[in-house]
């Protein structure tokens, strides 16, 4: 009876209002995004065609100018994730599957609190605490393992190197990555955890059989979110590094590549003319880099969809 009348009256008013506002909000987002894209592209064009002399420094053209920045961005974000990924997975596993309930809750709060610390504070911490603290270790590494290209000298006297900046970045992305990992680990079905335990799995074997494979897509999402933040983060790198426009992979020297975001923050106040367009264009490149990496990640997650557990 009731369904008949509802159907005859068409969609209910509440549904219509909700559908309308959802559609408006969706359209609005698209319009804003399109406007930003149009602005970025329009402002970038002059830089793309600029010749020697117009661009900052001695760059012959825009690509020569932006390449070291792209490299520095990806390199520092990569290093940061190299540190942050195993750490956040480990902490999240400890919270979700090892720690007693009380401790797990307390740790969860601490991690969430860490997420609320402004990035300027992390930058200061990097300069004042971390850099002096790690400098002796850097000296030791250069003295003893300097034959490995990554650890080649001369060692930075201040400890403010790309590695330090990446560690600061890692600490900054750690909370969000840990929080996501913890959530997906907690959602691992009890059913499958018990299946593993009943086969005689130890707790760690159970995690490897029933938790980690299930959490794969979630872990990749966490890495992507962390990467997004590491790629776009300005303050940590801008404060810790006194950068150069170079491409090198030395972790411990005082000549370090800059990142796109930090370069924009440092250069924008003094930029004029085509330099402004060059900075905006570098922002566009950052956007494309982030987009590209995200698409690769989606592809990786999508490849084994049938085995994801989504159809269990």
């Amino acid at each position: 009876m009731t369904t008949d009348t509802a159907r005859r009256g068409g969609i209910r008013l509440g549904d219509r209002v909700f559908a309308g506002s959802a559609a408006t909000a969706g359209a609005l987002i698209l319009i804003v995004l399109a406007a930003v894209a149009v602005f970025l592209i329009a402002q970038s064009l002059p830089a793309l065609g600029a010749g020697p002399g117009e661009l900052p420094g001695t760059a012959q053209n825009f690509w020569v100018y932006v390449w070291p920045l792209v490299f520095g961005t990806i390199w520092s974000a990569f290093l940061a994730l190299l540190v942050a990924t195993p750490l956040s997975i480990g902490i999240a596993l400890f919270i979700s599957h090892y720690a007693p309930r009380r401790l797990a809750q307390a740790l969860g709060y601490v991690i969430d609190l860490l997420a609320a610390v402004p990035s300027v504070v992390f930058g200061l911490w990097g300069i004042v605490v971390l850099a002096p603290f790690v400098q002796p270790m850097y000296s030791w590494l250069v003295a003893n393992l300097g034959w490995i290209p990554l650890f080649a000298g001369p060692v930075s006297g201040t400890g403010r190197t790309v590695l330090t900046a990446s560690v600061v970045l890692a600490v900054m992305v750690l909370p969000i990555m840990t929080a996501i990992c913890r959530e997906v680990f907690l959602q691992a079905p009890r059913l499958h955890e018990e299946a593993a335990l009943a086969l005689g799995a130890t707790r760690w074997e159970m995690i490897r059989m029933a938790v980690l494979p299930f959490a794969r897509a979630g872990i990749v999402s966490a890495i992507m979110l962390g990467l997004g933040r590491a790629l776009g983060e300005t303050m940590a790198v801008a404060m810790v590094l006194s950068p150069a426009l170079v491409v090198n992979m030395f972790l411990l020297t005082s000549i370090n590549p800059n990142t796109i975001a930090a370069n924009i923050a440092l250069q924008f106040p003094e930029a004029t003319g085509v330099s402004v367009n060059a900075l905006i264009a570098s922002g566009l490149v950052l956007f494309l880099v982030t987009l590209g990496i995200n698409m690769i990640a989606r592809y990786i997650v999508g490849r084994r969809r049938a085995f994801s557990g989504a159809n269990a």
């Binding site: 079905p189 499958h192 018990e194 299946a195 009943a198 086969l199 005689g200 494979p213 085995f307």
Partner: peptide, 21 residues
């Protein structure tokens, strides 16, 4: 852990690992 390798268990809801073939 060793006990459970000797005494197997089948559960109420079928629970093959969805991430495995």
């Amino acid at each position: 852990v060793l006990v459970r390798r000797q005494v197997g268990m089948v559960f109420q809801r079928p629970n093959p690992f969805p991430t495995m073939s």
